[in-house]
Design a binder for these strands. Structure first.
Lengths: 253, 253
DNA sequence: TATTCGTGTGTACGTTGTATCGAGCCGATA
DNA sequence: TATCGGCTCGATACAACGTACACACGAATA
């Protein structure tokens, strides 16, 4: 619940009156409108869209569905976002704004570990976000993530490129890991399977067919022997520890 | 190309019909039709769809556009795939089928490194595939990737769960890394920027605005000092080396 | 030659993103 | 107090999408 408010800037904007061809979404939303907003605000739009995506999936977020949820006409939101792409940018930034980035941590490793765990939790809580965002978009609240990481890494005195390499490796691992976790979850939901057992049962015919081809002896052996196939937490944590161990070893920190 | 393995009757249709009355895409495509296909084949469909996605992006792959490219009516492809989702499954499997998985390698590390490099090359050559696929889908040619990895890892005598953890960590890193590389490339193409310089120039206003807010002092310092910002190869390789170092250290192999 | 069935065609429907225009509301000005 | 110009939101419309459905063709079977 620690809420970092969505796009509210704090700069006086005294000198940046250069006329850009098209000011970015965030720049536009920053300037308070002369007339105070009444029914619609970027915040309310993002909130409603995120709620729909969380409960019904990203595909359920249509401009009409969103308008209905907001109680306005289908085209009303276009006053704030230039199109659906910007709507999704807004949603992503809104969710990143809820990341708890102020947790104290001593040492770079604990800080990166905590960051990774929080990012994964966010990806699992909003299963659509890994597909909609990339680790390096340029939205205010997304950029706060590398900012936090760089600040935590500063103590080690690494050069800039190495610092980025460390953060990027972790971020990219978390993104890919979450994406694969979420993909399975999406499949489960799409097929209407309720739990892990039903999912395994639903996937069984396909798996049986594939194994029946005889092309995958090593994989088949894995299936028979593995005991943690359905323990995503263990897989995530183990992989993360590998990554952090590797960073420590590779850069000698 | 799609599965080329022998049919192998698959006798057990006894009790495994849950909510899935229809056999999977791959199972259906396996059985040769009594009448030899004439104008359309799964292979031709996948090939044409991939060609469109490669040159015009995944969004350009519509059932109508595909039909035009194949010289058939809009609904023709529906004889082979049940809908657009299966079309994309077919495309993904087609591309994975072109991965060179038989390159010899001595040692698990060289094998995993080679696998990672090839996977990344595939993701960059077909920029849509990272968004369309996950590292663990159950299509024949996708499953060949863990199969190859497990075979290469077998020499080390790790237990099944650890073997998967190793492969998953690498696969997930490559997936996330490629996704972020491709995202920038997609942005470049979408905005019509031709090279890295134009991209940087196009992103500059947004970056200037964000830095102007003063929220990102560490990131700003990075921007000023870094010299490898535009060297994705270095970032990928460095991160991969971290991951492999970490695996070696964490599991003592 | 008559029948069957796999294959591709033609048409149509509901939904999507969004361009365009008009109406209502507001604070500022006269 | 009356007028005005700007945002804000509503209403309508359109092209393109995925795909359901019914039908026509031709080779294989009899």
């Amino acid at each position: 619940m620690p809420a970092q408010q969505a796009p509210t800037g704090d700069s006086d904007a005294a000198a940046d009156d250069r006329d850009k061809p098209q000011p970015s979404l965030w720049e536009r939303l920053d300037r308070p409108s002369p007339a105070p907003r009444t029914t619609l605000t970027p915040h309310r739009i993002a909130e409603a869209a995120v709620a729909i995506a969380d409960t019904e999936g990203l595909d359920a977020v249509t401009m009409r569905r969103l308008a209905t949820a907001l109680g306005v006409a289908p085209m009303a939101a276009y006053r704030y976002v230039s199109g659906k792409d910007e709507l999704i940018e807004l949603m992503v930034d809104f969710v990143y704004g809820q990341l708890p980035l102020d947790t104290p941590a001593d040492g770079w490793r604990e800080a990166m570990h905590s960051l990774a765990v929080h990012l994964r939790a966010m990806n699992l809580a909003h299963p659509w976000i890994a597909r909609a965002a990339t680790p390096f978009s340029l939205s205010p609240n997304q950029l706060a993530v590398p900012e936090r990481a760089f600040a935590a890494l500063a103590e080690r005195g690494l050069d800039a490129d190495t610092t980025m390499a460390v953060f990027r490796t972790v971020a990219v691992y978390v993104h890919g890991s979450s994406a694969s976790e979420v993909a399975l979850e999406d499949l489960r939901r799409a097929r209407g399977w309720s739990d892990g057992d039903e999912t395994r049962a639903g996937l069984a015919p396909r798996m049986t067919y594939l194994m029946g081809t005889g092309r995958y002896p090593s994989y088949q052996q894995y299936l028979q022997q593995a005991t943690r196939k359905d323990d995503p937490d263990w897989h995530f944590t183990t992989g993360l520890d590998c990554v952090l161990d590797g960073i420590a070893a590779h850069f000698g920190i």
